[in-house]
Computed example of a mutant assay.
Amino acid sequence: MCESESHPCDGEDKRKECDFCKYSSSITQSRWFDAFNMLTVVLDSIFIVHVIDPSQTNFPVFFYIADGFFLSVYLLECVLKVCADPRGYWRSASNVLSAVIVLVSWICWFVNVLSQAVSPKTVIVLRVLLIIRLLKMLPDTYTRAYQAFIAAFLRAMKTAVFLIGLMFVVMMIYAVAGYLFFGDPDTGDPDNWGDIGSALFTLFRLATLDDWTDVQQRLDDLSMEFSCIFTITFILICSFGFLNMIIGVVVTEMANAAEQIQKDIQCERKESVDKKKEIIVQQQKKKIERLLQRQTDDDRRLYFIKEYLHKVEEQDNTTKECLQLFTDMMQILKEELEDRQTDQTQKENSLQN
């Protein structure tokens, strides 16, 4: 009896839990929920930037009340999303990051309210990371675009590892040479070339062309021989050579990513059109099948309808083949016209020469 009585309770509990999950999902998937969360993030950002004074050591009570309000909204958002999709929520890296930041922020908030052992600035630094969620306000196309660009940048960095390593080797050679030639504390420039670390930092400035004339001017003032040759050759090799090659690799990957995004968008549009077309065709077929089922008393009419549909399908295939043939012919004519135009241009150039 106990077992039989426990089953209805379990089923009722599961049904209530399922209803609560559906209710939570309907809330989290609504537009006003996302809008309210984004508005909270924006107000929190404005609060952090314009209200908080970094020079303060003791914050007023208003700060803790407003901070607790924003943290409550973030916590409510996490709870509703977890209730809506308990497993899927933790599969997203952004959701995990938000949950960890909110949890740590709440712990710091309680500790600070009770004993003020944690500086509110620590909580502020953590909360600034939540502003990243403003990227969710972008449309899906832009979201996919920056994800593709980040992936392209990472691929470019993998390709450019060899160039970066080779550039570092060249910088080490020039750093040792600069330290030996210009690093003397009495007759040289110890501020820029006094040790290997300073020399590497100075060479990084030269590679990025950041006030490189000031570095060279100090060497010229000290009458360092061949210093201009040292500086010019390094800039030509690292700045105009390696850095431009690295930038070229990154730009190439970005261009390929942009082209791939356009192709994906076109494929998705084509698939959407094909699906709609398939749905329309299936609906027409169902209607025709219903008509055929109603005409069971007249075999000749059935035969005529079947033959007619078969001929219509053949006609559609023929039309498609004709369109494809016409496209191929136009492509061939285009290539012939381009060849003739190229030949004519070459003849005119030869006559002018």
Rank of each mutant, 00 (worst) to 15 (best):
S4V: 08
V49F: 10
V79K: 07
D339G: 04
F47L: 00
V79S: 05
Y174R: 02
N349A: 12
T28Y: 03
Q346R: 11
E225W: 06
F326N: 12
L129G: 12
D67E: 11
L163R: 07
V249E: 01
D297L: 10
I173V: 10
E5Q: 14
L333Y: 13
I280T: 08
M157T: 09
I48A: 04
V215C: 00
S45H: 02
S115G: 06
L323S: 10
A117V: 11
S30P: 02
D298I: 09
A177Q: 02
V125H: 12
I46T: 04
Q216R: 10
F181D: 02
S72M: 07
T202W: 05
E12H: 09
N349M: 14
S227F: 02
L333S: 14
M137P: 00
D67R: 00
C83Q: 04
T252Q: 11
L302F: 08
I288D: 07
Y308L: 13
L129C: 15
R91L: 11
L200H: 01
S239W: 02
Y89P: 01
Y179E: 00
I265C: 08
F240S: 08
Y174A: 00
M171W: 01
A152Q: 00
F69M: 04
E253M: 06
I65Y: 02
Q260V: 05
L135Q: 10
Q260R: 12
A199P: 04
S6T: 14
M329Q: 14
F70R: 00
E335A: 13
M157F: 12
D211A: 03
I288R: 07
G183T: 02
N95K: 00
Q315S: 15
F62Y: 05
W109M: 11
M330V: 07
A175E: 01
M330L: 14
S198V: 04
F47G: 04
